[in-house]
């Protein structure tokens, strides 16, 4: 994001806080600062809107991932199979 000085933050700081806000990790000062910054900066206002929309879409999609352990197990099985194939071809 283009760096331009605004009321409290520059835009990169504002974008950073905006991302934190999406994960509920922004503190009150950061949240207030984003609101004030966004009043003056259209770019960051658009970014915030897009960012919230992205969070909504991700929640709506209800993505389920394999856990690291499940992945490790699959990798292990695959690895064994690869080495079995290699040894039989030699």
């Amino acid at each position: 994001m283009q760096k331009s000085k605004f009321f409290i933050f520059d835009c990169s700081n504002a974008a950073n806080c905006c991302d934190k806000k999406e994960y509920n990790e922004a503190n009150v000062r950061e949240k207030t600062s984003i609101i004030i910054h966004n009043l003056f900066c259209k770019k960051c206002r658009d970014y915030s809107a897009k960012n919230s929309k992205l969070t909504q879409l991700i929640k709506k999609a209800r993505i389920k991932g394999c856990t690291s352990e499940e992945k490790r197990n699959i990798k292990e099985r695959l690895k064994q199979e690869i080495s079995k194939q290699k040894s039989s071809s030699n």
Binding site: I63, K64, G65, C66, E70, K71, I74, K75, L78, I82
Partner: peptide, 18 residues
């Protein structure tokens, strides 16, 4: 490239299957 399959496609396939 079977060595990268799990990292690249496990989540995609899992979501398709579940």
């Amino acid at each position: 490239d079977p060595n990268k399959w799990v990292d690249k496609y496990a989540d995609y396939l899992f979501n398709y299957a579940i």
